[in-house]
Amino acid sequence: MISYRVANLAKKYTDYDMIQRHTELPTFPNGRVQLLYTFLNQGQRHSVEDSELFSLVTALVQMGLDTHEMIDVQEEDLGEQDMRSRQLKVLGGDFFSSRFYQLLAQSGHISVIALLSDGICRLNERKMSLYDRMKKHKLSSEEYVQESVQLKKQLFLSFQNMIAEQQAELYDQFLTSVSLLDLLVEEREAASDVERSKSRFAYLHVYENESSDVRSALAKGKVTPSEWNELINKHKTIEVLTKKIDQSVLLVQGLLESQVQDHVLCEELKTLIEPYFIHRASA
Rank of each mutant, 00 (worst) to 15 (best):
Y4D: 09
V6P: 01
A7W: 00
N8W: 03
L9Y: 10
K11E: 14
Y13G: 06
T14M: 09
H22C: 09
T23H: 09
T27S: 12
T27C: 05
R32N: 07
Y37C: 08
N41T: 07
G43T: 04
Q44F: 08
S47N: 09
E49A: 15
E52A: 11
L53V: 04
L53Q: 09
L53M: 14
L56I: 03
D66H: 03
H68A: 12
E69Y: 10
M70I: 07
V73N: 12
D77G: 06
L78W: 04
D82A: 13
R86M: 07
L88H: 04
Q102N: 08
L104D: 14
S117Y: 04
C121L: 11
L123P: 05
K127F: 08
K135L: 14
K136Q: 14
E142R: 10
V145T: 08
S148V: 03
K152L: 15
L155F: 11
S158C: 15
F159S: 13
M162E: 15
E169A: 13
Y171T: 06
D172Y: 03
D172K: 07
L175C: 08
L175Y: 00
E187I: 01
A190R: 04
A190Y: 01
V194C: 13
S197R: 02
A202H: 01
H205M: 09
Y207G: 05
E208H: 07
N209V: 00
R215M: 14
K222D: 12
T224G: 07
P225I: 03
W228Q: 12
N229H: 12
I232T: 11
I238H: 00
V240R: 07
K243C: 09
K243I: 01
I245H: 00
G254R: 10
L255C: 05
E257T: 08
E257N: 14
E274Q: 14
P275D: 06
H279S: 13
